[in-house]
Design a protein around this nucleic acid. Structure first.
Lengths: 351, 351
DNA sequence: AACACTTGTGCCATCGCTGGCACAACATTT
DNA sequence: AAATGTTGTGCCAGCGATGGCACAAGTGTT
């Protein structure tokens, strides 16, 4: 009776109210909520009607406390430019919600040993059940071990397989970068400059070596290599360096779209026509690509799908279900656009 | 004793372990955790040492259950504000964490009546203590009333005061749009086209009327107005329409940076030089602005600060503290760049 | 010396749910 | 007819914290 009074007092209905309304016990209602098979069909229906009638939703906090889990997962990211964050967050959040979890995001400042401590503090404070680790955070060395030591489930998205994580959703950036090289070679380019990403990041190294290997397979040596840090300023600086020489390359591959944007800017300033005098290809497939002039040829990555897949793995891990990592790897796609074209002989060329 | 055994078994320490280690009661430890004044200084120190020794962190779930709150706040995002998501999330998350809350994100699809139902379902499901509502979601009509009916605290960020929300952090977009108009007028422009945002959105209406009022104050009538929907495609379409006429405007004001990017693209295609033949100004101050060619003149908004302020208000509301809405409104800043310049007489002009 | 405060502390119930176990009711085997 | 499943159901004890209340000890008042 006290129970019914509480329920009627304007607060949220509780499982006890449902039990009373369905004329059964709290335990049975709980079984219905958790899809336990040991419930009579008729009883189950009665309970479901009561739930619908009262518009009852179980308290996640109480469930979490009783189950010894938080029903919360975390996501680690670092994307100051936020070109993909929304998409990724939708992917993770959607899958999490579907399976009864909620998402807490945490942005990590890279660099320094503090990053790991920061992540651990976040995980302990929130008591999340698991963590989806996105690039470039997944590249932090020692993080999977630190997480394992604290018994925190984690699944990573990365360009290469990472030891330490129980599951990694791979983004075959090496291959995709090779595809870019082949594409440029087919267009007749053999005088190609690279603007690499920071080489302490795994994905940046992959993009570089994939590109170089493909060049090498055609017997081509890059005209020049410059390292940037994925920012616009570094793309501009690299382009200044590359485009100030007397002998210009006919193509530039920048390891991300933002640096490619820098190249386009410098080329425009110097009166170098893209793609007539210079082909430019980026990497990321970000929303930026089609906003640039000319539209940037780039490689699109299915971030959303990858994030969703990683989340699915993570939840299986948390719930002790088999990981089924047999799903085919998601491919990256070269999206040729207006910033790249056939190589043409130039005034400056030796030949 | 059972308690200590449990504590020693490798699990997280609980408040009972701390109480035992500090040779006091659970209740007193709880008081220390909650900064209750009724604790002897010496006892408090002893408890604090025990907490540090055991590396104890109270379980948010258990606290939440006992306090009848979730200690969670929600944030609604949408792909329309994808470019600022990271900044906004940092602002909200930082303030929330500082005050003992965590942030749960939820993406909302605009359009349709489902949006409101979706938000309510999210709020009920998660039992969040409050909601920070950002544009464009804050523009949904009827949302504050729906939230109030469900007793969900909410604070909005918006371009205009919104009835229904107990607190609104204002972004003076009307004034800022007026500043853009004055800026263009000072540069000598009097033949100006507008690409407005979708007029069912409050901020888009504010930007439009602020701009038009300032033009009017100088006795200028816009050469043309086209409505877009804040996407690149709509910016392109609008630009096609505006720049295909025989008499070109000398300046275009696009209601957001993405549409302005579309204008730059069409202008480039048509051989219209920016800023020599045409000045272009956007709105948002997004990362995009400096990546475009030429760098886009735009209006920057302090999203991060606004989000943080909104969060602070929200938490005060939740905790029953006074709202102190006396803080000075945060200003938007016109950032002139390379895409705008003095008006010059043109071949096509009548004059 | 008796009374009323103030200050600090601890016991117990409670938040809303799940897990373990007992057990009633009925069907199936020996 | 007794022994043994098989289902479905309910009771009770947690999960880890907070809130209300009682109360011991120290201080100040008549």
């Amino acid at each position: 009776m006290e129970v019914s009074e509480r329920g009627a007092s304007g607060n949220e209905p509780t499982i006890a109210d449902v039990a009373e309304a369905a004329k059964t016990s709290i335990r049975t209602v709980s079984r219905v909520l958790n899809d336990s098979p040991k419930v009579n069909e008729e009883t189950r229906e009665r309970v479901k009607r009561a739930i619908a009638l009262l518009n009852f939703r179980p308290s996640p906090r109480a469930r979490a406390l009783a189950m010894g889990r938080s029903l919360l997962i975390g996501m680690l990211h670092n994307d100051r430019n936020a070109l993909v964050l929304d998409t990724v967050q939708r992917g993770i959040g959607g899958e999490a919600t579907r399976r009864g979890y909620e998402l807490i995001t945490h942005s990590v400042d890279l660099g320094g040993d503090e990053a790991i401590a920061d992540v651990l503090a976040f995980a302990r404070r929130t008591r999340i059940d698991g963590l989806v680790v996105l690039p470039p955070v997944s590249g932090i060395i020692g993080l999977p071990e630190a997480l394992k030591a604290e018994n925190i489930h984690a699944v990573a998205v990365s360009a290469v397989h990472l030891d330490g994580y129980p599951a990694v959703v791979l983004s075959h950036e090496r291959k995709a970068a090779g595809d870019v090289a082949k594409y440029l070679i087919e267009l007749g380019h053999d005088n190609i400059a690279l603007i690499n990403g920071p080489q302490d990041m795994i994905s940046a190294r992959e993009r570089r070596s994939g590109f170089l290997e493909a060049l090498d397979a055609s017997g081509i040596t890059p005209a020049m290599e410059v390292e940037g840090d994925y920012t616009l300023a570094s793309g501009r600086a690299a382009a200044e360096e590359i485009l100030s020489r007397t002998s210009l390359p006919t193509a530039v591959f920048a390891a991300n779209d933002i640096m490619a944007a820098g190249v386009l800017k410098i080329a425009a300033e110097k009166g170098i026509r893209v793609p007539d005098d210079l082909s430019v290809v980026g990497f990321d497939g970000s929303v930026l690509a089609e906003m640039l002039i000319p539209s940037l040829s780039t490689v699109s990555r299915p971030f959303g799908k990858m994030a969703e897949l990683a989340t699915s793995h993570l939840l299986n891990l948390i719930e002790g279900k088999p990981l089924k990592t047999d799903s085919p790897p998601l491919g990256l796609t070269l999206l040729p656009s207006r910033s790249s074209g056939p190589a043409t002989p130039k005034r400056h060329s030796e030949k």
